[in-house]
Write a protein that binds this DNA or RNA. Structure first.
Lengths: 181, 181
DNA sequence: GTCTATATAGGGATAGAC
DNA sequence: GTCTATCCCTATATAGAC
């Protein structure tokens, strides 16, 4: 089992249980590796496992979302590409976001820097795309924030109601939020 | 110290740390009561403390938000009253929402029923207000969902960026989301 | 690399004095 | 009602065999 395959299992646990809920026992069970083996891969312990997960997620989004945001296609197509990737990334809203679950409690103390940097990067890229459509910088930034807000909010609603429709609608609404209104 | 005052301190810890992060040690420190004293108030232990917190929050929102949603004033005024109460309830976005932090991991297993029932109640009341303005039931429900989504999403953004402006804007936008568009 | 076994700290929870 | 002292369990982490 490659290290990347291990990390993918860790991702699942951290996203669903949060940092404090992601016990080494659960991480061990999910990966099929005994605790000592996990510590062989990640000598910094659970904190390093979480960092590896954050890094993996940042790379995935960079490759699948941010790249298409920066392509040379028209803004609308780039937004649609992002929407599609997000639908996959959040598994139709059923997979929680690390930004949400890692910005709470002890995890927030440990990883705030990474989370903030990542979110700002995302917002900056989105703002640029909106600006290209002739929108003023400040308003473009607000639209970018609105877009991420509705996605994050939809994920909360889905978790609580077990209904993925709000997420589907939020994703479908992204072009309108960013390009119209 | 009255039991209500104790619960108010518990609320703070659960909202900021989530269920698994809200250790009895932290709860003890926050309330100024030693562990054994907490167990005197809440014989069901930490789970009962969380239930008391959920109950307290539900009552607060019922009294301060839901009541004004059901008043006999015009819809716009009721929405504005709700917005104002929410600004207070979330302390300008700096106080996390239990719906978000308790819908993760073990807490979600324990409290899903309460969370879902509460959220559905809120959505139903909001939907009714929107319907009164002549909007079809299905669209009214979507507007209600959009409103709660943007608030929940704003709370995530505030936690990660340490900037309360997105929350302020989300609150200010509620009348538009619910009554215009 | 992966395991069993174990060390150490902190979690939730209780007994019983005051 | 509140406390000190304590129990048991699980959490994180490590040692060392294979």
């Amino acid at each position: 089992m490659s290290k990347e395959q291990v990390i993918r299992q860790l991702v699942f646990v951290f996203r669903h249980y949060g940092y404090e809920g992601a016990t080494v026992s659960r991480l061990s069970e999910a990966t099929g590796l005994k605790k000592a083996s996990l510590y062989h891969y990640f000598q910094g312990g659970k904190e390093q496992m979480a960092l590896a997960v954050l890094d993996y997620i940042a790379n995935w989004l960079d490759k699948n979302v941010f790249t298409s945001l920066q392509s040379d296609k028209p803004p609308r197509e780039r937004i649609q590409a992002m929407s599609q990737s997000l639908d996959e990334f959040y598994d139709c809203g059923q997979m929680p976001c690390l930004l949400s679950v890692m910005s709470v409690g002890e995890a927030n103390d440990l990883f705030h820097q990474q989370l903030e940097q990542f979110l700002n990067h995302w917002l900056t890229l989105l703002t640029k795309v909106v600006q290209e459509t002739g929108v003023e910088p400040q308003l473009a930034r607000q639209k970018a924030e609105d877009a991420l807000m509705i996605v994050q909010g939809a994920l909360v609603l889905v978790r609580v109601t077990n209904d993925i429709q709000p997420f589907k609608r939020a994703i479908a609404k992204l072009p309108q939020i960013l390009l119209e209104d």
